[in-house]
Amino acid sequence: MILSSTKELKDKGFEQILDFFRKKSLWMLHYCTGCGAVELPPTMTSRWDMERFGMGPMATPRQADLLLITGYLSVKSLKRVIYTYEQMQEPKWVIAFGSCPINGGIYYDSYSVINRLALYLPVDLSIEGCMPRPEAIIDGFTKLMKAIEKGEAVGYKKYKENYEWYKKNQREVLERTTPVL
């Protein structure tokens, strides 16, 4: 009993050290369906210079830690996002840009655009705005870094624990067999 608890304590301390390195080196994969993709290049390049925080764009989901959903998601692209998310290696985080992944935004009554991303993927951080300016994006990133350091950004653990719930929601949208109305 004592042994296991000390081991836990040690693991926790070790994780804390690793979390420090993880927050300093967030590699991101941006899923550019929406208008948020336009705000990313100035954030990356010399005007706002995201690389100061050790962040950089990555080419494939295997290499990335951070998935950026930059805007609205149609049902068809939701399927691809889920594939992408599940290909990423833990620890991994999701950031949703703008109001569309929060409540549908201007697509609240669209028949093909999902309203709330958090039903299908564990969103660690939402940056509101339509679209968020680079200042807001950088602000969001620093907030995520703080959350990672404190060990609060645990979306990927939530996804594993509530896997059935997430899968049920995803199936409702993607593999429906009966009409809705």
Partner: peptide, 28 residues
Amino acid sequence: MARIRRCYAGPFYQSYIDVIKLFSKNSI
């Protein structure tokens, strides 16, 4: 490279951080 592009980039020890982070991740 960042200075050539008029950026600042991370600290010069960024690569060490990256390597430690990469080894701390799950891999497939």
